[in-house]
Design a protein around this nucleic acid. Sequence first.
DNA 1: TGTGAAATATAACGCTA
DNA 2: TAGCGTTATATTTCACA
Lengths: 164, 164
Amino acid sequence: MQPDRGAAPAGQLDDLDRRLLSVLAEDAAVTNKALADRLGLAESTCAYRVRALREAGVVTGTRAQLDLALLGYPLQAIVKVRLGSHTMANVNQLYAALAAAPGVIQAFHLAGADDFHLHVAVEDAAALRDFVLRHVTTHRVVRQTETHLVFEVRRGAGVLDRPA
Amino acid sequence: MQPDRGAAPAGQLDDLDRRLLSVLAEDAAVTNKALADRLGLAESTCAYRVRALREAGVVTGTRAQLDLALLGYPLQAIVKVRLGSHTMANVNQLYAALAAAPGVIQAFHLAGADDFHLHVAVEDAAALRDFVLRHVTTHRVVRQTETHLVFEVRRGAGVLDRPA
DNA sequence: TGTGAAATATAACGCTA
DNA sequence: TAGCGTTATATTTCACA
C-alpha cells in the first residue's frame, strides 16, 4: 500500500486544483503534457494531481457533449411536473420512470410547487406532445404538467471561476 | 412518429453511430480499442467513425464531470427570472450576464412567463441569497425572481436510447 | 481491415527547496 | 511536504499499405 503523498483530500482544494479542473471541465481530452504546459507544471506533477483528483472523486467521469439538433432533436423543452400524492414510494418510483423516459436530458427534483422539471429534447412539436402524453401524464400520481419551449441553453460560468 | 430525414447531417447517422455516441456520452475517456471491442468493430474502423462524428460536429467536445458537493458547493437551486422589458438588447445583455455569473451551471432561455431559469450551485443558503441579490436582482430589467431548492439532479436517458 | 512507427500515459525513483 | 526531472514500461494513436 502506497502511503499517500499528500493526495488532495476532498476538503482541501487549492487554487492549482481549481485551475486544473477548470481546464478539464472545458476539455477533458486535453493531453497531460498540454495541461502541464498550460499551467506551468511539470508533467509528473500534473499527472499526479489529476490522478489524485480522480481518486478523491472530485472528477466523477468524462462525457462527450453532443449536438442534439444535428442528431435530429432540434426542439428542447422544460416540462414541469406536479404530483397529487407525495408518498416516498410514489416520488421515488416516478422519478426513476421520468429520468428513464427517452428524450430526457436531465431530471430535476425540486422543492416547491413543481416537484420535477424535465429538460427534454425532441424531434418536433408533435413529438413533444407525444412525450408528455406517453411518459408523463400516464402516471396516475401526476396531477398537472406545464411545458415550456426552450429557446436556448447556455453553459454557465460554473463554480470554478470564482474569486479564490 | 417518423423522424424526418431532412434534419440529418452530411452523413446519415446509422444505428452504429448511435451506439458509439451512446458509449461516448457516458464515458468519453474510453479508449478506441475498448470502444471497438465493445461494438465488435475493427479499431481502425471505429477510430474513423468517431473522427467523422467529431468532424461532422455531432460530438462538440468532451467535458470532465465534477462532484459539486466535494468542491464545496453542496447546495443547488433553480432561480426563475422574469423580466420587465423584453427588448432584444435587454434580453441578450442580461442573458450573457446571468450565464457568466459565478455558480451558474446552466442558463435556460425559455418561452413563457419565466424568461430564464438558472441552475446554480452554491456553498450554503447564505451564498444563495447573496447570488440572487448580487447577480440577478441587481439588473434593472429583472422584475421578479423565484428560487427553488434542488433536491437532486439526475441525468436522463438522453435521446440515443430510443427505439431505432 | 491490418500494421508499425510515433506519441502518450503510467508508475517509480531520487533530488531539491 | 510538494514539486521537479528522469527513467522504464505499457498503451494508444494515426498514417499508410
